[in-house]
Amino acid sequence: MHGKGLRALTLATLVALSATFALVVFWAPNDADQGFIQKIFYLHVPVAIITLIAYVVAGIFAWRQLKTGSREWDLRSYVVIHIALIFNIVGLLTGAIWAKASWGHWWVWDEPTLVSFLIVFLLYATYQPLRFSIEDPERQARYASVFAIIAGAFVPLNFMAVRMATSLVHPRTFGTANGGLPGEMMFVFLVSIVAMGLLFWLIVKYEIAQKTLTWQIRALRRRLLGDDAVAPLGRSAAPTIAPQEAPAR
């Protein structure tokens, strides 16, 4: 059931990603100041934007989990944060490469996206240890949701604070989405955001489908082969009970 639409989504992602790469390499004009190196922008900034949106969305899912008590929402919130963390790492690495290429250092503190990205990463990196240290699955879901809501609200606030602290000293050297980007660049940028969003959504769907399948097969094994056939569930950071088995239903 979770696998439905995966093929269409995969194809759409493939098309959008290929289009992005082709446009970035062959079509987008070179930036007047930074030259070719500016093209990392089409990778780094969309990844960053998608990550930040995903964190906020995970907070909304977590809110739904608390309101409904449904394990399904916990699973969605967990998977979104999990994949957003991976995107976050991609954003940090590409940002570091960009910083090295244009300023000669692997890290610059006057680039607010990069800095707030690191802070947000440090916060969300504690999500899995927090889950891991709670054994009762029901309480794990509840506490993780509380964390996700707080952290989701933290993301924009943190970005604002970092931006305030940096923009004073150093004027921004390049335009972002809302700062006078030439039409062609803007187009490529938007295509790239769509592509990264599709990629994110695709991976989230894959992950949810895989987890649901694993639980279903596990339940099947238990029914057919008895309790001995399934390895006992160890402590896990991931949501451990299939939504079908959740007491909330």
């Binding site: 990778l43 780094h44 991976i86 590409t94 490469i97 090295k100």
Partner: peptide, 26 residues
């Protein structure tokens, strides 16, 4: 050949390779 194979080109390539590598690891 439209891609400059100087320093800038290599950094841009590195950034995209990071994305590909992580997707492939996934």
């Amino acid at each position: 050949p439209a891609v400059p194979y100087d320093k800038a080109g290599r950094y841009v390539a590195a950034a995209f390779i990071v994305l590909f590598a992580i997707v492939l690891i996934y």
